[in-house]
Every structure is written in C-alpha cells, then in structure tokens.
Nucleic acid binder design. Sequence first.
DNA 1: CTTGGCTCAGTGGCCTAGCCAATAGGACAA
DNA 2: TTGTCCTATTGGCTAGGCCACTGAGCCAAG
Lengths: 236, 236
Amino acid sequence: MSAPESPFPPRLLRTRLYEQVAGQISSWISDNGLGDGDKLPPERELAQRLGVSRATLSQALVALEVVGVVEVRHGDGTVVTAGHQTSSRIVEAIRSHADRLPEIIETRDALETKIASLAAARRTDDDLSRIDDALAFMAADIDAGGRGVEGDERFHGAVTAAAHSLLLARLMDEIGDLIKETRLESLGQPGRPQDSLAGHRAIAEAIRAGDPARAAEAMHAHVAMVSDVALLREQR
Amino acid sequence: MSAPESPFPPRLLRTRLYEQVAGQISSWISDNGLGDGDKLPPERELAQRLGVSRATLSQALVALEVVGVVEVRHGDGTVVTAGHQTSSRIVEAIRSHADRLPEIIETRDALETKIASLAAARRTDDDLSRIDDALAFMAADIDAGGRGVEGDERFHGAVTAAAHSLLLARLMDEIGDLIKETRLESLGQPGRPQDSLAGHRAIAEAIRAGDPARAAEAMHAHVAMVSDVALLREQR
DNA sequence: CTTGGCTCAGTGGCCTAGCCAATAGGACAA
DNA sequence: TTGTCCTATTGGCTAGGCCACTGAGCCAAG
C-alpha cells in the first residue's frame, strides 16, 4: 500500500443481496441468542420471510458457511455453529471484573448512538417495517403483562440492521450477551417497559424521518435511561 | 441422539457441488498463473464448461469472494484478486467483508469519540504523560522525515488507555488491524502527518483540560480528517 | 477536435418453478 | 424390543428468463 498513486481506485461498494441477507441472518442469530446446534427455519420459509428467492438465500448461507457461522445439512436443516460463540471471550473477561456495568453502558452508548444516526440516513422501507414490527411486538407483549424483553431485543436488532454496517453489527454482536443482562435488569423495574417503549418510538420516528442527529439524541437518551437503573443498583 | 459422547466423527463430510467448483476454479487460477486483475470467463460460459448450472457456479463464486480470491463485478465480469494466497481463517474472511473504508471510519468514530470524552473525564497524570510521550515521539519522527505512523498508534493507544474502559479497549483491539490499514493510507498523503499531529495536540489539550465535550469534538474532527482520504478515493 | 449523449452488446443479479436426494421420525411387522 | 419400511420435510441443483449495470462505439453539438 505504499503506492502513493491510485487517486480514485476503488469502486463504490455495491451491496449484493446475499450480503445483506447474510448480515440479517447473522444478527438474527445473535439477537435471538441462538447457539451451537440451534436450527434456522427451513430455507423455503426463511427465503419467504426475508423476501428473497431461495437461490439468493442459498448464496447467503454459503457465505455464512464459509465464514463458519452455520452448517447446512442436506435433508436435515441449517444449524448454528459453535464457533459463533466467540463473544464469550470478551464476555468472560468483563464478567470476571465484576462491577463493569458502567462500561457496558458506555460502550453501548458509543455504538448505538452511531448506529441510530446511520440508520436514520440509510434505512430502507424494509428496515422500517422490521423496526415497526418489533415495536408492535413489544407493545403487544407489554399489554399482555409482559416486560417486552424480546421486543426490546428485536428493536435494537432491527435498528442495527438498518445501519447497514457489518462492522458495527459485528461489534454489537460481541457485546450482545452483556447488553442482554442490563436489559433484563432495566425492564424488570415497574413502569419501565412503558418508558422504554416510548423511547423506542422516539428513536423509530427519528429514523423514519431520516434525521440522524435526532435519532442519535433519542438513542442516547434511551441508553441513558437504561443506565439509570444500573447505576442506581451499583453505586453512588 | 442421547449418546453424549460420539466415538465416531460427527458426520461424514459431504461435498457440496459448489465446493468442488470453487476448488476447480481456484486451482485453475493458480495453474494458469492468473493474477491481479485477470478476468475469468463469463458465468454462462464457465458454468457450461464446468457442467453446472449458473446458480451453482454463483454459489462457488460467493465462496471464493468471501475468502477473497475473486471479485465479482456487476456488468463487467469476475476478476482475480491480488493476494489470494493468504486464505487465512475466519479473521481474514471477516475482513474481506469489512474492508470497506467507510465502515471502518464509522466504527472508529463511534468508539474513539466516546473514548476521548471518557479520557478527558478520567485521565490520571500518568495517562497524560503517556499521551505526551506519544506526541513527542510522533513529532520527532516527522521532523526526521518519517510519517509518524508508530507515534499515531501510540497516541491512540494512550488515549484509549486513559478512558479506563476495558470493554472499549477490547473493541478497539478487535478492529485494530483494520484501523492500521487506514492509518497507513492516511499518513501516506503529503502534508498529512503534520495535520494529524495538530489534530492529536488538540485532542490532548482537551483531555488535559478535562473537557469531555471538546475532546469528543476534537477526536471526531480528527477521524473525519482521516476519512477524507477514503472519500477522495471514492470519487467517480 | 473535443465533449456529451445515445445505443447496444455483453455480463452479472435475482427470480420462478420444479425435480432430485438425503434425513429423521413414525408406523408396523417380526 | 428390534429392525424395516414409508413418508413428510428439507436441502441440492437445474433450467430458463427478465432486469440492471458496464463499457465501447457512434454521432451530433459546441
């Protein structure tokens, strides 16, 4: 790379469908906490759910297989590989130091604030509908007396996907387990699910409006609200 | 499946067609001494010649693309990539997906902006002196005609350490290699080392003053400057 | 002569539709 | 209980087709 020339070499990145699909599947896996041996839906169903053809989905699975995320078994199904559980490395490291909740919040704030602003700039209509689905799911869960934990997870997963950044998605993936714990903590507080839902709606609106600054601010506020619990519980 | 152990290897490796095809193409490339930029035959022709359908060939190309052997260009053709002898492991595979400059910049911005603000709030005197050392090192290197690459690295390392967040440090570590590449790229530009040094000094001052907002802003500006290179390269 | 727009052939992207092949699990007979 | 067979489910692969992008050549306007 010492070559000083090459003023405008690289071509604009062209997103191939299979890449997006692979990314979505990948984050779906981590969002739902799927691990070694867990099965993905059948190709036909998955393809329909993702709105792509089986051929394209198949390409995505090849990519994920090459990377070592899944294993495709003829006649049986597609299962998540153990190797995907690399996150446990970091998870363990942090856990061993106990009392790292503030760090988790900080990191989440750094990543998700950026993700929110990117999502506002890049979201497609499909992204939006997935975000809306997650909101609806969470609302229904809460109405039914639930805490909306899964809806919360889905929402953040959908927003992350909407940012269309594989790298950021991957990092979120890494700290996914850690976040999950803070999530349980936060949503366990009385009245919190409703507040959280309101926060999500504000974020979704900013993303829908395509307003990066507002989306970032809304996400920041949301994460700050979550941290409220953690800090209360932890220390000063 | 209740049997916990399994004396026999899990399951027979079943060769999928795309794997064979990918293998053939791969060896065909090396046998014919094809290198950077050389074109493969059109998909339709190649598929026919190999006796497989276009869909299967397409899967093989996806696999080769993920591994970094070829690059498929819509409307143009499939070309062989430069250094395809690496073929490392997962790390390499992920890189081939994440080697998009914009994504790296975005991620770096997300993490380092936060890190800078935390560093301003938490830095100890030791942290400060390490930051100063890095600055001095970089300045000396540049004066001597160098590009200040190592000083740049040290500086960012020192700032990251000053943030006192294990998690953020770990994530920075994860993307360290990717950042290193952009760094080389950026500092290779004429006049850039000086600009970079100035940017570093602004960041250091804000951290010294204990001003998180200013530190974040300075870091953001610095990262934006680095991204400048990447953007230049993307001009049509 | 240069510039910009246009056309067109070549090439990859993705889809629909369908049949083949492997697997797992249940039904059933020994 | 054991072993065999059947069948629904699921992935593997093909065929054929339309669309979108790219690059090269042509041509008129400046």
